[in-house]
Write a protein that binds this DNA or RNA. Structure first.
Length: 277
DNA sequence: GTACTTGTTGAACG
DNA sequence: TCGTTCAACAAGTA
């Protein structure tokens, strides 16, 4: 499941590979993943445009084009964005829905088995307005996300449980099911804890755990559970560092307790009942 | 055939 | 209006 570190990995890789390239042709095999414009309009605007820059907000990949338009891509559960240089045979598969062909013979494939993801064409000038409407919370790896700010935001959401709150994109952007659980484990906090019961030190630990885990995960090119692949079609290696996710009935690395699983806010949630309080 | 998986959305509730 | 919970969405896997 691509979350912040997975999308950031793709951004970093694409920055090195496709910036400055011109889109010569597009092939669209699945219409419904294009949102916010007709197929005709999408083709007209995207074809023959140049890739200006690549960035990210929350879990959304942003590709800025040279013609004052931008592509927003959300991978949801099973999306992949894969770059292929001309030296490789094109690995189009059953779930390849869009193929972007560049002028130098390289390609970008957009795959998505479950078809939850989407691509949205938007005027670059309207990006700011779009993200304001979405009301995304702060980016956890940016300077304005401070411990003070985190505390302040928590104080406004005292009624909720901590793990679903971490996953709320309006609270903090980019955290999904995996990293929310890992952060709770790292800070020795049960995912079901109500925000108002968190002590000063726990909040501080959680804050630094979150940042540490996200940074480390980006270094590892993300976690590949299920389908995730980076822009080079490779798996992320952070799975090796996962402490609780998908470890039901296994021994806790910290205290040798047995990892349990609960459904919390209708999402699978792993935790160690012995050392998470 | 059935249960289960997940990020986001939109509806319902207090 | 806001915070919170929950079903729905789609397709694949076990």
């Amino acid at each position: 499941m691509p979350e912040l570190p997975e999308i950031q990995t793709i951004v970093n890789q694409l920055q090195r590979k496709i910036v400055g390239k011109k889109i010569k042709a597009i092939e669209i095999k699945l219409l419904k993943i294009i949102k916010g414009s007709t197929l005709k309009n999408f083709m007209k605007i995207v074809q023959r445009s140049k890739i200006e820059s690549i960035s990210r907000r929350a879990k959304i990949l942003i590709i800025n084009l040279s013609n004052n338009y931008s592509l927003l891509i959300h991978l949801k559960l099973s999306g992949q964005i894969i770059y292929q240089s001309k030296t490789f045979n094109l690995k189009v598969q059953k779930h390849t829905h869009i193929i972007y062909c560049f002028n130098d013979g390289s390609f970008l494939l957009h795959n998505d088995t479950r078809q939850f993801g989407w691509v949205k064409l938007i005027k670059t000038l309207e990006l700011k307005k779009y993200f304001q409407q979405e009301k995304f919370g702060p980016e956890p790896l940016e300077k304005n996300f401070t411990l003070e700010e985190f505390k302040k935001q928590l104080a406004r959401r005292r009624g909720g449980k901590i793990k679903p709150l971490l996953m709320d994109q309006k609270f903090v952007a980019g955290i999904g099911n995996i990293y929310a659980q890992e952060a709770c484990f790292c800070a020795k906090i049960l995912p079901t804890r109500f925000v108002k019961t968190l002590k000063e030190k726990e909040i501080k630990d959680l804050f630094f755990c979150l940042i540490k885990i996200l940074k480390k995960a980006i270094d590892c090119h993300g976690s590949s559970v299920d389908d995730y692949l980076d822009a080079y079609g490779k798996k992320g290696s952070f799975v090796c560092y996962l402490k609780v996710y998908d470890r039901l009935d296994k021994k806790c690395f910290r205290c040798s307790g047995i990892i349990k699983k609960n459904i919390l806010a209708s999402r699978g949630t792993y935790f160690c009942p012995r050392c998470q309080k």
